[in-house]
């Protein structure tokens, strides 16, 4: 059976959920082989085995993380040339898409980004124009390279050998153009990443000011969720820009999206419309966001949200 290469997303030793999702998908089309860059593979291996990785190609050099994108693309290109995999799957994160793009040029392959599913014949499903249209497409040249949106698949365990295989150790000079000199971690530290989270709680202009965002954070923490914000809220400086959801912000597709004090402008919807379940809290019954709601409460967020937090805490017994 041909290999399906899966580029691991991990933070140190911790395998990100999206990698388990990609492995779950990959198993349907071939033998999943993970590609791991940087340190931590030995410790991450159990989790990769749990989700069916047959092999783990490891390029352990720290150099792979010291330069922007190019070293990963170079490594994948070498593995594609050596093993002729049936496809390469990466997470459709900004960096994942960039790796995929450079790999596509290097291997003369077609590229599909932001897939929300993959069907027979490696036909990828995408949801475009803010979720208004569903497109099915397939790669017609080279090795199919598909970037899959986090949360699009439910990860299902199925044991694999996860045999560790050392892969290329050197980064070429050509791939050392843009050097990372420091990584700066900003707030939101303990919460799940916005694009990865199963639950996202977003606040908008209705939240009123920066201090009140503590309420949104409290609700998010009660649910183990990530915090998002509308552009009205980020533009006003109430919440950092990297948490903006929408057309010019992040695309999220969680199991549950909670929109609090957000009207549902088309540019906001573009970033959250494909969420599985959508819950809305807004005092204006006419707000367009209610059109998307599986469950909506028409009411003042300053009374609804505290009550909701209390109820959640009572039910979860904390």
């Amino acid at each position: 059976m041909a290999e399906i290469l899966v580029l691991a997303e991990h933070s140190g030793e911790t395998v990100k959920k999206v990698t388990c999702e990609l492995l779950t998908l990959a198993r349907r089309f071939g033998e999943p082989a993970v590609v791991w860059t940087g340190p931590g593979a030995e410790a991450g291996r159990d989790r990769l085995a749990e989700f069916g990785a047959a092999k783990v190609y490891v390029a352990a050099g720290e150099e792979f993380d010291d330069y922007v994108v190019a070293p990963k693309a170079e490594l994948l290109a070498a593995l594609v040339a050596a093993g002729s995999p049936a496809a390469v799957l990466v997470a459709s994160t900004p960096e994942g898409r960039e790796v995929a793009a450079r790999l596509a040029v290097k291997t003369g392959s077609g590229l599909i980004t932001d897939a929300v599913g993959i069907g027979d014949g490696l036909v990828a499903e995408q949801s475009i124009f803010g979720g208004a249209i569903v497109v099915k497409s397939r790669v017609t040249a080279g090795t199919p390279i598909i970037a899959v949106r986090p949360n699009a698949t439910t990860p299902e365990p199925s044991p694999g050998a996860a045999e560790i295989v050392a892969a290329g150790t050197d980064v070429s000079d050509a791939a050392k153009g843009a050097r990372v000199t420091e990584r700066v971690v900003q707030e939101g530290g303990e919460r799940p990443e916005l694009t990865e989270a199963s639950i996202v709680v977003s606040g908008g202009r209705g939240v009123g000011n920066a201090e009140n965002f503590a309420l949104i954070e409290k609700l998010a923490d009660a649910l183990g969720a990530a915090v998002g914000a509308s552009r009205a809220a980020t533009d006003a400086g109430w919440y950092p820009h990297q948490f903006q959801v929408g057309q010019t912000g992040k695309m999220v597709s969680p199991q549950l999206y909670l929109a609090v004090g957000i009207s549902g402008a088309i540019q906001h919807r573009a970033g959250m419309q494909t969420s599985k379940t959508i819950m809305v809290i807004n005092k204006d019954a006419e707000a367009p966001i209610f059109e998307l709601a599986d469950f909506g409460v028409v009411g003042d967020l300053f009374s609804v949200v505290p009550q909701l937090i209390d109820e959640i805490q009572q039910r979860s017994g904390s």
Binding site: K136, S137, A285, G296, V298, G299, P306, Q307
Partner: peptide
């Protein structure tokens, strides 16, 4: 290097349940 096999408008979401807060909205 890729081709569209098909495309279609996403089926509209099913209408959800909307309640008015009468002091019990959070519950």
């Amino acid at each position: 290097a890729s081709e569209v096999v098909s495309f279609a408008k996403r089926p509209p979401r099913q209408a959800g349940t909307i309640v008015k807060d009468e002091g019990d909205g959070g519950g």
